[in-house]
Computed example of a mutant assay.
Amino acid sequence: MAATTRDPRFLPRYGRVVLRIEIDGAAPTAEQLAPAVLANYGHFTAMQVRDRRVRGLDAHLRRLDAANRELYGTGLDGDRVRALVSHALADDVRDAAVRVVVFGTADPAVLVAVRDPSSPADRPHRLMSVDYRRPLPHVKHLGGFGQAHHRNRAAAAGYDEALLTTPDGVVVEGAITNIAFFDGDDVVWADADWLHGITMQLLERELPSRRAVVRLADLGSYRGAFLTNSIGVVAVSAVDEVEYEVDAGAIGRVRAAYDAVPWDAFE
């Protein structure tokens, strides 16, 4: 029987308990939250915090600053972001999933949401390819209806994630992930108009990596694949009808490389 979107096996393993939300360093009012709900315009970054530290903090701050310049015409001070995250964590939260959201059509505000920490899935994922590309793909922006819709479609068909592709079959990215393939000893990142994810950026520094255009028709020529996002690294066992035997050693090397990335403090 096909899984449905209510099947917990196919829900993302995000922290479901919201511990705290602040806007510009204070508890939000309804008037402050209204632009986030109604305008649906802005950008964000998501991170896993452990012991009040995060991997790739500078990359997160660069992402926020670049997106802010593109969407609002002005930079976003990294020290301000660090202070806002530290304030939202307060003295009682050391491990969390943190999302920093800049929103509003004018005079943007900075929202920090603190939730229970998340861990990567402990089983390989199966992907369903879909013909869809995110608008303004290099920006991690709000308004991901298309991604959510295709993830729900994939879940209803028994898959774990949607794989976004172009009409002519070029692999772009997952709905909420980047994808890479094993080609011998090298890691091949699908090269397209995608979001350059933080975990992808960190792993490109740590592993023998290259980028290449990957087409659906070529998937059988690779010996494996994996997904990355802010939660971590997950092996891929299939894309549509193409199946991969998961190489525990290769996935283990990727995870070890990610585990070796140093953690950066907010304070």
Rank of each mutant, 00 (worst) to 15 (best):
A36M: 15
D65C: 15
D218I: 02
R123F: 10
A212Q: 14
H125T: 01
A39N: 09
T29S: 15
P35H: 02
A154L: 04
T105K: 13
E245C: 03
F103L: 08
P137M: 04
D131V: 15
L227A: 11
L11E: 15
R50C: 05
A235E: 08
F226K: 05
I198P: 12
D183H: 07
R134P: 07
L76W: 08
D160K: 05
G252N: 11
L71C: 14
H125K: 15
H125C: 11
W189L: 09
A154C: 06
A83V: 01
D24F: 01
Y41R: 13
V114F: 00
A88G: 03
R16L: 10
R126I: 01
R53I: 00
G75N: 12
P120R: 07
T29M: 03
M128H: 12
L202C: 14
S209Y: 06
H138E: 11
P117C: 06
A67L: 03
E31L: 11
D65P: 13
V54G: 09
S237A: 13
G75H: 13
E206K: 15
P262I: 00
V261F: 08
S119W: 03
D92M: 01
A97I: 02
Y244R: 01
R13D: 14
W263H: 12
G25L: 02
L136N: 10
G158M: 09
R94A: 11
L136H: 07
V130R: 08
R52G: 14
A2N: 12
D240L: 07
A212Y: 00
G169W: 02
Y159H: 11
L195W: 04
A192V: 07
A192S: 14
T5L: 12
A212L: 03
S129H: 10
